[in-house]
């Protein structure tokens, strides 16, 4: 589960896929997750990181993270999932 190397992510959370020309916006917590994914963190590690920094229960956190990753997958942001 690695974000494609050519995906551009601005510090404001604006995401650009140069292969498809698609662009998306992530909110601050989404941007944080994206950056962790880009650094090579796995789902478990991201859950731990977010749990330490946000006041929420682990079930909600896991559900939201799964949703986010699934959305990113649909947008073809991960390596080896299209093209």
């Amino acid at each position: 589960m690695k974000i494609k190397k050519n995906i551009a992510v601005s510090e404001n959370g604006f995401i650009f896929n140069p292969s498809s020309g698609e662009s998306f916006s992530a909110n601050p917590s989404g941007l944080e997750i994206l950056n962790l994914l880009r650094q090579g963190h796995d789902k478990e590690s991201i859950l731990n990181h977010m749990g330490e920094n946000y006041q929420t229960d682990s079930q909600t956190l896991e559900r939201d993270l799964t949703d986010f990753i699934e959305t990113a997958r649909q947008y073809h942001l991960f390596e080896h999932e299209d093209e």
Binding site: P18, S19, S20, G21
Partner: peptide, 18 residues
């Protein structure tokens, strides 16, 4: 990125599509 009702591009972006 932006298409008129005649299907013409009114905005677009250069991409790297191999």
């Amino acid at each position: 990125q932006y298409i008129t009702d005649k299907g013409k591009a009114w905005g677009g972006i250069s991409i790297d599509d191999k």
